[in-house]
Amino acid sequence: MLGRARIGLVVGDRELVGHVWLKWLKDNGLNFVMRLPKHHLLTDAHGHRHAIADLGLAEGEHRRFAQRQVDGVWGQVWVKALAGGEFLFLFGTSGLQQISQRYAKRWTIEQCFQNLKSRGFNLENSHLACHHKLRKLLALVSLAYAFCLAVGHAADRRQPIARKQQGYRATSLSRHGLDIVRQLTRPTTGAQTTANQLAERLLDWIIRQVSHYKIPVKIIG
């Protein structure tokens, strides 16, 4: 549906595994990075098979393998030992030195899904059963999320969000933007701050675009 030329990298979690899927990606020339469950075995060029738990990695230690076979497909492996006997077990074709950094980009997708399902957008609370209405709802919620994320980015550039001891932001960018938009929609709120003024200008721009392109808007009570 997207077209091969538009796909730079396919990133997936432990649910997206198996010989058929991985072989299809490789046969179609699509670079991928997948996290695999720890029970999947590695096979070297001599046909020897071993589990990642047998590598003897200490917590926080990682190893790379340029060519290993997993689920009947040859690729690159990056393994890191985590706390509690868990592992970050990555398998892919996107370049051994960058495989972990590229997989890390998936976290922004995970955050997006978590925010859409709850955390203010509450997509999972819908009881719609109609496929077409669900598509419209998902599109609207996605636009709202993108808008709040853009507002959060702009506000963070002007006044950085406070950081926790671990270095993470105390509030996510999307949540920060959502809080600003909520504040703007309150009847007694004025747009005194730069971030509020920026959000109002962005809202005005969207309204002008709707009017200019005569986008049909249907209000449903």
Rank of each mutant, 00 (worst) to 15 (best):
W107I: 02
A129T: 15
A81H: 10
G84C: 03
L55W: 09
I7N: 05
A199G: 10
L30W: 06
A154L: 02
Q101D: 14
K26I: 01
I161V: 15
E124R: 12
I219L: 15
Y145P: 00
I7Y: 06
G152H: 02
H212L: 13
F89R: 02
K218A: 12
Y103I: 07
G8H: 14
V17Y: 08
F147Y: 14
L143F: 15
K136N: 11
E110Q: 11
R49A: 08
P187L: 09
G167C: 08
S94E: 09
R119Q: 14
E61S: 11
S211E: 14
A51K: 12
G95W: 08
W205R: 13
L57A: 10
A199C: 14
G3K: 08
L55G: 05
A155W: 00
K164N: 13
I206S: 06
E15N: 12
T185C: 14
L116T: 06
Y103G: 06
I99E: 10
I215F: 11
T188C: 04
E110F: 09
L41K: 03
Y103H: 08
W74S: 02
S142T: 15
S174H: 06
L57R: 07
K23S: 13
H40S: 02
A191C: 13
K38W: 00
C130A: 14
F91A: 00
Q159Y: 03
N31Y: 10
P37V: 09
H50N: 03
N196M: 12
L140R: 13
L140K: 11
C130L: 11
D44W: 11
R35A: 11
A195F: 00
L128R: 11
R106H: 12
A191D: 06
R182A: 02
V73F: 07
A51M: 04
G177F: 03
A53H: 06
D54S: 15
W24G: 04
V79I: 13
F87D: 02
A139E: 02
P187H: 10
L9Y: 10
F32K: 01
M34S: 11
T194Q: 07
R6W: 07
F147R: 05
I207M: 11
V20I: 09
P160Y: 03
E59I: 15
V33L: 05
S94D: 10
L149K: 05
D13V: 02
D179A: 15
H39S: 09
T188V: 05
F89N: 05
A58C: 07
E15Y: 12
V151Q: 01
L123P: 02
S100R: 13
H46S: 13
F121Q: 04
A195Y: 00
G177R: 08
V20P: 01
Q101C: 10
S94R: 01
L16F: 15
G190H: 13
S172R: 09
E59C: 13
M34G: 05
A83Y: 02
L22A: 01
R182W: 04
Q166I: 03
G12I: 01
A45F: 03
I52R: 01
Q69D: 04
L116P: 08
Y103V: 09
I206D: 00
V151C: 05
L9E: 05
R35F: 07
V210S: 07
F147D: 03
F147W: 11
E15I: 03
V210P: 03
N31T: 09
V70T: 00
L184R: 06
Q76D: 06
